[in-house]
C-alpha cells in the first residue's frame, strides 16, 4: 500500500500516461514510492507530496521529465524469452532474407528498447547469420526514456546486466571489460542507431521495417492508446514483415491489423488492409 495521497498519485499517474501512454494500475501504485524514492533523496525533497505539487505546477519541465523517466519500468535482458528468439531466428528470418534477396537489405526496429539489450541481441544474432554476409542491416532502436537511450548508446553494462541471458562466448566476443562493467565493442555498437522516440508519435524513418520488436512495452497502455499504437506499428511494417511481442502479450481483441502466424504462433503478421 502507498501512503501517497490520491491527489498526488493522480499527478504522477497523469503525467506518466500523458507522456508515454503507460498506466499505473491501482495494484501497482506502490511502485510510485519505490521508483521516486532515489530521486527524492538525491534532490533533497522532503516528501513525495511536495514533489507532486512542484511537478503538478508545470513550472519545471526538466523535473517532470526526470520523474517520468524514474516511473518507467526499464526491466530487460539479453535474448529475453529465448523461445521467442528461436522462433524469430528459425521461422521469421529465413522468409525475410528470401524476400529481400534482391535488395540485400534488412531493416529492423527495436521499439521500446530500454537500455539496449534487445537491440544488441538482434545485432549479435544477425552478425552471425551467414546468409546476410555483405548485406546492409539497419537496426533502429528507440525508447521514450532519454536516460535509457543514453545508456543504450554507451553500450556499457554492469556485471549483473551482462550475464542476464547472454551466452558467455558471445559476451567474450562482443564486449570488452571496462572498470566493473562490460562495454559493447565499436563493431557492435556501429550496427545500431539509437534515438529517442515515443510510440505515441508516428514511426521513425524509414517506416518500412522488415521486423519490429515491440516487446513488453504496450502492456500497460490504455486499450484505445494501444490500439492506435498497433495502427502505427502496422503502418511502419513492410507487407511481409513480422512483429514480435513480449511473451505475455497478444493482439487478440486489440487490433485488426495483426494476426498470429498460423504456422508459427508468437510471430505476428499484418492482416490484409
Amino acid at each position: 500500500m502507498s501512503d501517497l495521497s490520491p491527489a498526488s498519485t493522480r499527478v504522477f499517474s497523469a503525467i506518466l500516461e500523458a507522456r508515454t501512454g503507460q498506466q499505473i494500475s491501482p495494484g501497482r501504485r506502490w511502485r510510485i514510492d519505490v521508483a521516486l524514492a532515489p530521486l527524492l533523496r538525491a534532490r533533497g525533497w522532503r516528501s513525495l507530496e511536495q514533489l507532486a505539487a512542484q511537478v503538478g505546477s508545470g513550472r519545471d519541465p526538466a523535473l517532470a521529465e526526470t520523474v517520468v523517466e524514474a516511473l518507467l519500468n526499464n526491466e530487460t535482458s539479453f535474448f529475453r524469452d529465448p523461445a521467442a528468439w528461436t522462433l524469430f531466428a528459425t521461422r521469421a528470418l529465413p522468409g525475410l532474407i528470401e524476400a529481400r534477396t534482391a535488395e540485400r537489405r534488412l531493416r529492423l526496429w527495436s521499439a521500446g528498447c530500454a537500455t539496449g539489450q534487445e537491440a544488441f541481441s538482434l545485432a549479435m544474432l544477425l552478425a552471425d547469420e551467414p546468409r546476410l554476409a555483405g548485406w546492409s542491416v539497419d537496426i533502429v532502436a528507440t525508447d521514450v526514456s532519454r536516460a535509457a537511450i543514453d545508456r543504450a548508446r554507451e553500450g556499457l553494462f554492469s556485471q549483473f546486466e551482462i550475464q542476464r541471458g547472454l551466452p558467455a562466448p558471445l559476451m567474450l566476443r562482443w564486449f570488452e571489460q571496462e572498470g566493473e562493467g562490460w562495454r559493447a565493442v565499436p563493431a557492435l555498437r556501429r550496427r545500431i542507431r539509437f534515438h529517442h522516440h515515443s510510440l505515441l508519435e508516428p514511426a521513425p524513418a524509414p517506416a518500412r521495417f522488415d521486423a519490429i520488436f515491440c516487446r513488453n512495452v504496450l502492456f500497460y497502455f490504455a486499450d484505445a492508446v494501444r490500439t492506435r499504437a498497433f495502427d502505427r506499428l502496422a503502418g511502419a511494417l513492410a507487407g511481409e514483415g513480422v512483429l514480435m511481442l513480449g511473451a505475455g502479450e497478444t493482439v487478440i481483441g486489440q487490433t485488426t491489423h495483426f494476426a498470429s502466424d498460423a504456422a508459427a504462433r508468437g510471430l505476428y503478421r499484418r492482416t490484409q488492409p
Binding site: S77, P82, Q159, F160, Q163, R164, G165, P167, A168
Partner: peptide, 22 residues
C-alpha cells in the same frame, strides 16, 4: 557456461536455459 559471482536466481536460470537444462 560461466556465471560471475555474485549471482541471483534469474541469472542462473538464464544460464541453465542456455545449456539446455532450463
Amino acid at each position: 557456461e560461466y556465471v560471475m559471482k555474485p549471482f541471483d536466481r534469474e541469472t542462473l536460470a538464464g544460464k541453465l536455459q542456455i545449456v539446455g537444462l532450463g
